[in-house]
Simulated assay, not measured.
Amino acid sequence: MAVQTGAIARSAVLGRLLQAVGLVTAMAIVNFFLLRLAPGDAAQVMAGEAGAATPEYLAALRAQFGLDQPLWAQLGKYLWHLAQLDLGYSFRQGMPVLELIVQRLPATLLLMGASIGFAVIAGAALGVLAAARAGRWIDTVISSAALLCFATPLFWIGLMLVLVFSVWLDWLPVGGMFTVESGLTGWRHALDVARHLVLPAVTLGLFYMAVYVRLMRASMIEMRRQDFVRTAVAKGAPGSRVLTRHVLRNALLPLVTMVGVQASSVIGGAVVVETVFSWPGLGRTAFDALYQRDYNLLLGILLCSSVVVIAVNGIVDLVYARLDPRIRLPR
């Protein structure tokens, strides 16, 4: 029996891995063609900057970048290198794309993790509080604040937070990931990074916190009306146990689902936040790559973003199964 269970588990893991590889490959192909639809290329940008946009110079640059080959040949070459984990070379940055992504990815993951953690914890707590006081003044205040955060653009929130906490109060740094000239190490360096992280993470997380507040409030109210909750109360179960084991645990399921759905939009929001706060992550790098027509770097960042989204959704599936044992992961 144990051997059969282990074989089923290995088969499920293998199936999920094959599905992830297929999704990543499909996304790579779609991104490749979407970028080729954009006007201009890296050769035109570099020739324009050099002031030598002659037909001969453009032809030489396109041959150097491989842009003179047919589109199907470029795609085949790209997929072949991708299968070898070779994301190409960024001629604008002067280094391999994979090396550049490895340098910038930790900063983006740190920003994403902090913002999602803040949004989930604050959103769930405020949603539970609003549901417990539904129809009262505290419910109105929380719902109104959530609606305000939802309707306010990210860049404006970021600028206002900088104005208040960096310019007026001088509590937090304006931008960057750490103080370059400080030379801090160890825990002091980690604390310095945390201080720089507060404003970007709160800016990115406020929008999603507003969504989770509304979702959690509605889910809590709905769960409290379910028959199994009334049955637990009628049997004399303690109120705290009913709240945590029956109401809250089931109310978290829609929120966890929403986290997985919004993983891609968090990466998109990181582009704006990283630009406002000069955060050295993939979002800001993607914006620069798009402006400079650095297709190899942009394709690598888009592919990395797809992998991150798939990984987040895999984690969401595990959390989902943990919250509700009746749910089985797809095999």
Rank of each mutant, 00 (worst) to 15 (best):
V3T: 15
V13D: 13
G15N: 06
L17W: 10
V21S: 08
G22V: 00
L23R: 07
I29N: 09
L35P: 04
R36S: 06
A43F: 04
V45T: 00
E49V: 01
G51Q: 07
A53S: 10
G66L: 06
Y78S: 02
L85E: 00
L87K: 02
Q93R: 13
Q93M: 13
E99M: 07
I101V: 08
S115H: 06
G117T: 04
L126A: 00
V128R: 04
A132F: 11
T140F: 07
C149P: 09
L154P: 01
G158T: 02
L161H: 09
F165R: 12
W187D: 09
D192F: 06
L204V: 11
L204R: 11
A210Y: 07
V213I: 15
R217S: 05
A218H: 12
R224I: 03
D227Y: 12
R230L: 15
T231L: 14
A237P: 05
A237V: 15
S240H: 15
R241V: 11
V247I: 14
A251S: 09
L252S: 08
L255H: 06
V256G: 01
M258P: 02
S265I: 13
G268H: 01
G281P: 01
L299Q: 07
G300R: 03
C304K: 04
V308I: 15
V309F: 01
Y320Q: 13
P325E: 04
R326C: 10
I327G: 05
